[in-house]
Amino acid sequence: MSKDAPVSEPTLHCPEILLSRRRVEETDEGARLVLIVRVSCPHFCNLTGTTVLVTDNEGGELELPLASFNGVENETDEFIVATGSRGGTYSWTASYLDAGEGRPSHDLVTSTLSFDYRPHATSLAVWGYPAHACAGDSVTLMVGATCSKGCVLEGRRVSVLDEGGRECAEAALGSRPWEGTQALYWGTATFTLGAPRGLQRFDARLGDDAEHGAAACGFSLFVAPQPDCILTIAVCGQGDGAPVVGATVSVHPRVATTDTEGTVVLAACAGSARLDAYAEGYERYHADLLVTGDSTLTVSLVPKPRYEEDF
């Protein structure tokens, strides 16, 4: 038998390509997207120096070299593409094809990325409302609005509508963004909860103006009956029986955290209820209760096995 001929590599490699978005920035003329293209070949080919073609949906072309190789992936440098000033969906497609002069060639692969540009897009946030309340309670919540270009929205009004579409409150947006945000202008709205019990859904709505579109944001409140019982719940660890401090305990809709004695006191309504508890280092706990009056309960949490972490 003759000596084996060297096994030759396939002459056509099938790489993978990914056009990915790193940042989006708003400008006066539209949006600018910072992109990067990665091409990887299953044969670990170093493709630096070869080029990726990026085309936009209007036929514009950009040729970019693969600038670096980490042993697996070939990357272009970051590059910027821009939308037009008009709203709409913009897309870009990166293509890679390497004829491979003197080396294996690489088959055509493409990756497309789309971006929906809405100039002066507004959006809302609603927060600060209680997890639950009783019929007849007055509820105050915060509502904020932002414009994608960071416009000052001071003075704009946001309506709060109930499930039937009736306006139940209104908030006027103030002059300063909410703490920790870039441009979330906010105000408060107060209204009185109606009679129906259970889940009530609301909508906050911001109308449009000459420059900005409308926006809406839904939220829900649980309208509970007045509690008539008090549950005192002691949480301890199974085994040593030591109180578990900082455990989260809920008897829907009320939630509390255990004190230094491992105890919480929760108001509850007579009837069936579900009790949930968890604490770091313990398995989750739940029990179905039939609440008939003031009670004291002990919840025993099972410790999770403690393991060293691998890297």
């Binding site: 946030a125 927060w127 639950h132 939220f219 409140l221 829907h252 809709p253 939630v255």
Partner: peptide, 20 residues
């Protein structure tokens, strides 16, 4: 708010995603 996750049965207590 309803105290149950019918979609994926995530056990409670559940916390809203609200505060910006």
């Amino acid at each position: 708010a309803a105290g149950a996750d019918p979609e994926f049965q995530r056990p409670g207590p559940l916390f809203p995603i609200a505060r910006p």
